[in-house]
Amino acid sequence: MAKILEIRDLKLSFETEEGTVEALDGVYLDVEEGHFHGLIGETGCGKSITGLTVIGLLDNNARIERGEVLFRGKDLLKFTERQFQREIRGKEVAMVFQDPASSLDPVFSIKDQMLEAVRLNKKEEKQSNERIVKELLNKVKLPDVESLLEKYPHQLSGGMKQRVMIAMMLGRNPSMLIADEPTTALDVSIQAQFLRVLMDLKNTTNLTVLYITHNLAVLTEICDEVSVMYAGRIVETASIGDVFNNPSHPYTRKLVNSILRADSTLDSLEEIPGSVPRLINPPPGCRFHPRCEEAVDECSRVIPPVKEIGTNHLVACLRR
């Protein structure tokens, strides 16, 4: 299997009034073509920033200090905005955000917005473009496509809007989709419908998905591999089975044991003491060490390198 995306030692910071936020610090992430790769972490860990870097949508105050973001071998960090627009965004990599309401234009009908996306692709007859739009909307299992086309975003529910976003994205036939918390604003029953649309794409296309979320349970339903992110670094990458049944990094272990499952009790749930550190002057060494039960002196001095402890199982912890 070829790697479609390779992030190497990415370090990125933001200048703010309060100081420099070290948002990403040496991120390594490999995504295999055709796989669904989960990126999980808590608020502020840098998971969304990682996604935005790949698609070239970082804010102006972001500063890339070092590293490479290789997409099919080409370093995206060297791309100009124009190159991103022409070669990457939409065409190769698409992104779906948490709030579909703000991704759609409120003053255009679904038809107009869908047609625009399809038209970008290639010049074709108006009629065939409309046919393509209908096919796309059917693909994401939206009911009653005919009347839907004439509607405006505010007339759709959150789940429907999110599926329109997916249809629009498919219209340009990209190789990779970055989904940033796409179901967080949705109800569980709508989330379940949305995940099935994604699963369907997984089974019928060669789409690669980088699925960013804070919800581990969602990842288990659709992902092949998972990378766990903490305070700007990837601490563990493994198959979804290993993350659950054989987590290695102390943070991953705690995280897995803190999610509510069908058989959870208040006693079985683990808590992580303290809270996520601020990334202005983050803890030295391993950024998890102040909250880690296994931490030794060395952990506060040395940044743990990434080690391979099993087949495709990477961990960044000095104690492993």
Binding site: S189, A192, L216, A217, T220, I240, V243, F244, V256, R261
Partner: peptide, 10 residues
């Protein structure tokens, strides 16, 4: 509703 809840079991 209960069935729709993602089950954290890979």
């Amino acid at each position: 509703l209960f069935e729709a809840v993602p089950d954290p079991d890979p």
